[in-house]
Structure formats: C-alpha cells, structure tokens
Computed example of a mutant assay.
Amino acid sequence: MINSTSNKQVKRVINLQAKAKARREEGLYAAEGLRMCREFAPSEVEALYVTPAFEGQKENKEWLKAFSYEVVTEEVMKAMADTRTPQGVLAVARQKTYALDDLIKPGKENAPILLMLLENIQDPGNLGTILRSGEGAGITGVIMSRDTVDIYSPKVIRSTMGSVLRVPFLYTDDFTAVCTRLKEHGIRLFAAHLKGMNNYDCQDYTENMGFLIGNEANGLTEAAARTADCCIQIPMAGKVESLNAAVAASVLMFEAARQRRAKG
C-alpha cells in the first residue's frame, strides 16, 4: 500500500493533474471516479489507484479483476485527486491520437459528417459540455485551435462524462487552414456569429457540415469567420445578447440532429 504523498508515483499523478505540459510530454492524463474509470479498457490504463474502502466493496472487486492496481491510503488519494471528495479510484490513462483524415470520414451507418470547430475556447466546463452534448447529438468529431483549453485537463475530463473516449478530436496549429481544407472536401461550414444575418433554424444541416464556435469573450476571429460558407445567429428575446458557448453549441448541434432525424 502507498501511504506517503512523497511517493514517486503520487508525485507523478499530481503533476499530471496540474500541468498540461506534463500531460503532453508523457501522453497520459488522470481520470477520477468509478463512472469515468469504468469506461476504460485495461489496455488504455497505465496505472490504477484505489483506496481500501473502494477495493473492499463487492461490486468493485469484480471490476478490478481485469486490472493491475495499487492500493493507496485515503490521504494519498486526496492528494492525487483534483476533486474535493474523491470516490476512491483514479486512473492514469493513455491519451488518444487522431488525424484529420479520421475526422472527415462519415459517421456511424454512413451518417453525414457533423463537426464542431472550436477556436480558443478557454473554459474547461464549456469544452467538456460540448463533447458530451456533441456525442448525444451525433457529431462525428471536434477540431480545436491550439490555444483552446487542454482537453485532458481534469475539469474537462469530468465534464465529458466519458465522451472524450468516444468522440474523435484533434488540435491544429493553423485553424483557418484546416477550415479551408474541410471545405475542399465538400464540408459546408456555418459560423455562429453575433453579426450573422441568417437564423440558425433556417439553414440545412443534413449534409456534410461543421459549426464554428469562437472564444467565450471575443467570439470567432475575423479570419476564422471568413472561412464560413454562412454566418448564423440564434435569435435572442429580452435583453440577452448571446448564449454561453456550450449552450449555443448545443442548440446548433441538436438542431442538426433534429433535421437529420426528420430527413430519416
């Protein structure tokens, strides 16, 4: 049993939780909680840590049979965890990698492409919610500018509720160039923009397409907005000027899902 927070493994986990650079260099990340950890296949996990209380529960013993794991004290688990009240299980998992070609393939049952293109999203909760809502709406992938928040940060991982393991994604150093390449592949782009002249629910999202969503405070850069085939807006009642980035993205994704169901 690991009972010291000075243990080398413990320090490594704490470093992975705190630093995006460490996660990038090692190609690893930490994920907490039974719901998230149960999403992993044993081959995806480099290390698994549990407390004696977690290990002692009958249903957990059965699940743990597939894994090699270390037992740690409650104090050590609290030191490693990013949450205030850890659930007694934490995994160090291997990051997934995708190429652009993986994201421009049709979806399940040859469904049309539906991409989310995120420029400089900074709030971990927004990114996590977009992935989770996106999976529910049937998106086929997420493409992010390099300055978007780290998808493997603890808060993003928790917000995705496992969707990060199932939705293909990638970061790009040249966001506008990737947008241009998508258009060359026949993928129509719609930019969510305050100056959009077209209401979002009056457009056709049933073919290969993607939604451009910009930074929470500043929206899309002009360069990114210019790559769009159409700038759209979500009409607002009252004195509300705009929606939270994740809410706006969800409205758009589920409108696309509704249209695709209707087309059948």
Rank of each mutant, 00 (worst) to 15 (best):
L115F: 02
V142C: 03
N120I: 06
I234A: 01
I104C: 03
T206S: 10
G134Q: 01
Y152R: 08
M77F: 08
Q95M: 08
A245C: 03
Y49T: 08
A217T: 11
A225T: 13
G128Q: 06
K61A: 14
P112E: 06
L117W: 07
L100P: 00
S163E: 00
M144C: 05
L16F: 03
V72S: 03
E70F: 12
S153V: 05
A225C: 12
P112C: 04
D101F: 06
D123L: 06
A47I: 06
P124C: 10
V251H: 06
P52W: 12
A191R: 10
L212I: 13
A41L: 13
T97Q: 11
W63P: 09
I213R: 06
E241L: 04
I213G: 03
N60C: 05
A217I: 09
S153Q: 12
R38C: 15
N15A: 14
L90F: 01
I121T: 07
A217P: 01
K11W: 12
G27K: 01
C230D: 14
A257R: 11
M36W: 11
V247N: 07
Q17C: 11
I143A: 03
A137Q: 02
K195C: 05
R23C: 11
C179G: 08
M197H: 14
Y205D: 01
E119S: 07
A111C: 05
K105N: 11
N60R: 09
